[in-house]
Amino acid sequence: MIRILLCDDHAVVRMGLKMLLNNHPNMEVIGEASEGNECISQALELKPNVVVMDLSMPHGKDGLSATSELKKLMPEIMILILTMHDDEEYLFRAIQAGASGCILKSAPHDELIGAIESVATGNAYLHPSATKRLMEEYLGSVKQGNTDSFNLLSDREREVLTLIAKGFSNKEIGEKLEISVKTVETHKGNLMEKLQMKTRPELVAFALKKGLLGYGM
């Protein structure tokens, strides 16, 4: 059962989402909040698996600030940003804040269900148009001959990065590459240091931009 906390400043939106998600056999909405500070308080008390967080909340703490603070307090929590902004700037800001993914408010219901299921299992979720733009941006960068920290990674570190981004655990990566979990953790630490990244969603977005995952998540 995926325990979900909803954070949106519109009561009607929360009510609709609650009805939709509670009708799913593997999901339960355990709490609601209308702004970021209330969301943090509810999360600390209720300990949900996933927070569905509105990006823009004019009253109180906004979604990005709440996401950043909540991830510091509860690193294990997964946060799915709900936004009306189909803009890569918001996408990158959400990932940098620690969100596990973003989905548009206009997305079909089954896409929202799939996004929640994805982040609940530790994977990242990017809505299709954002995925395509990230790939186009990467391909444009390649054509211009731009280089970056990806070139600093060893072949093994690139293999580990790809498997992390595909959702495999350290143990599963070790089994696939026939190395110990400790060695996987060492490679992971080294590549995160080289890329100056701290979270799995950042790694997923980076791997996606580099074409390691293709267009699908």
Rank of each mutant, 00 (worst) to 15 (best):
L5Y: 05
L5A: 00
D9C: 03
H10A: 10
A11H: 12
A11T: 13
R14T: 02
K18I: 00
K18A: 10
K18C: 06
M19I: 12
L20C: 08
L21Y: 02
P25E: 07
V29K: 02
V29H: 06
A33F: 01
S34W: 15
G36S: 08
G36L: 05
E38Q: 15
E38L: 06
Q42P: 05
E45I: 14
L46P: 07
K47H: 02
K47D: 00
N49G: 08
V52P: 04
H59P: 02
D62Y: 08
L64R: 04
A66T: 01
A66K: 01
T67F: 04
T67G: 08
P75Q: 03
I79H: 04
L80E: 10
L82H: 10
D87Q: 14
D87C: 04
F92I: 11
R93G: 02
S100V: 05
S100Y: 14
C102P: 00
C102E: 06
L104H: 02
L104Q: 02
S106G: 12
H109N: 13
H109M: 03
D110L: 10
E111V: 14
I113N: 01
A115C: 11
E117Y: 07
G122K: 08
G122V: 01
A124F: 01
L126M: 04
P128T: 04
P128Q: 09
S129P: 00
T131R: 04
T131W: 00
M135T: 00
E137F: 11
S141H: 10
N146C: 08
N146M: 13
T147N: 07
T147P: 01
T147V: 09
D148M: 11
D148L: 10
D148T: 08
F150A: 12
R158L: 14
V160Q: 01
V160P: 08
T162C: 13
T162E: 14
I164W: 10
A165F: 10
K166M: 11
K166D: 06
G167I: 07
S169E: 06
K171P: 02
K171A: 12
K171D: 14
L177Q: 05
E178C: 09
I179Q: 10
S180I: 07
T183G: 03
V184H: 06
V184M: 08
V184I: 15
K188P: 01
N190Q: 15
M192Q: 13
E193L: 09
K194F: 01
L195Q: 08
Q196S: 14
M197Q: 05
A205K: 13
A207Q: 12
K209T: 07
K209H: 15
G211W: 03
G211L: 04
L212N: 13
Y215E: 10
Y215T: 10
G216A: 14
M217F: 11
